[in-house]
């Protein structure tokens, strides 16, 4: 075998592997979407690998009979509150880490990196007791507070690297021309950092949107979407929900996330690169 065939075969092998892996990732998403709209007959017809008759009954039932729609609304409220709180706490900290040199900076940064990995269940279980005392149990605000604790380390790290990417010269130029530090932050650094911050916000949104453990434990009636679905699917009834409801639920949960990755795909690798380093 000469070098050229060898080279060609290696290429072929590599891209076959890649293609297979991509299929492995997207086929389940496509299939579960199709099955979510499949009629009952098509689903139980063992000769029909791909359904051909479709219905929106299951998605509708999840949304309107089983509280999915309310769950979506709750999820959005919680996610927005989480973004609001975690950004207003996280941006100043991220800015400080990016733009100042001060004693203890490295240890502070390291602690934030470590806190990011703190196990969520450990936080959620004891929190129940506190929330009962503070009447925060079963409130969306309570869930958002807990989600903020989960998202805040990420927000601090992402914003600090976004701000670090905005050259100091721009801000110093503004200082020279008579703005104070806060004004120059508002007028110069913040607008320049805006696209990055928007991506970070989407990132936080998905984090909160997907979180189920904390939300399930801290709420009973005011459930976010994943918590609501968890209780429908495997709740006290013992997981007896018919399969096509499960597919519909998967679709409802996955769809917004797909759109998110599409818009933020350029940022995702760098963002994860930053936060996970």
């Amino acid at each position: 075998m000469n070098d050229e065939t060898k080279y060609f075969l290696t290429r072929l092998g590599i891209y076959t592997f890649l293609f297979t892996f991509v299929l492995w990732v997207i086929v389940p998403i496509i299939i579960s979407t199709l099955y979510a709209f499949s009629t009952r007959l098509d689903y139980y017809n063992m000769n029909k690998v791909i359904p051909t008759h479709f219905t929106t009954e299951w998605v509708k039932t999840i949304l309107f009979t089983l509280g999915g729609w309310q769950g979506i609304k709750n999820s959005i409220v919680v996610a927005l509150m989480t973004i609001g709180i975690s950004f207003s706490l996280g941006i100043p900290a991220g800015y400080a880490i990016a733009k100042f040199i001060f004693p203890g900076k490295d240890s502070i940064k390291l602690s934030i990196i470590a806190l990011r990995m703190f196990p969520i269940p450990v936080m959620a279980i004891p929190l129940v007791i506190l929330y009962i005392h503070l009447h925060l149990i079963d409130t969306l605000f309570g869930v958002a507070l807990a989600h903020t604790a989960m998202a805040l380390p990420f927000v601090v790290l992402i914003t600090s690297s976004i701000f670090a990417g905005v050259s100091k010269d721009f801000e110093e130029a503004a200082l020279v021309f008579g703005l104070n530090r806060f004004q120059s932050f508002l007028k110069i650094t913040l607008p320049l950092a805006l696209p990055g911050l928007a991506a970070a916000a989407m990132f936080t949104f998905v984090m909160s949107w997907n979180e189920v453990f904390v939300a399930s434990i801290l709420t009973l009636k005011n459930r976010t979407l994943p918590a609501q679905i968890l209780s429908i699917m495997a709740g006290s009834s013992g997981g007896a929900a018919p399969p096509y409801y499960k597919f519909a639920a998967a679709f409802i949960m996955t769809f917004p996330a797909l759109i998110f990755v599409f818009f933020a795909r350029k940022y995702l690798v760098t963002m994860w690169g930053i936060t996970l380093k």
Binding site: P28, S32, Y35, N210, E211, L230, A249, T254, V261
Partner: peptide, 21 residues
């Protein structure tokens, strides 16, 4: 894009999708 899609899929949704499979 395809490779990073699963980043945004929650564990619950992932479980449900694989139930479909």
């Amino acid at each position: 894009y395809a490779l990073i899609i699963p980043l945004t899929i929650s564990d619950v949704a992932g479980g449900l999708i694989w139930y479909t499979m």
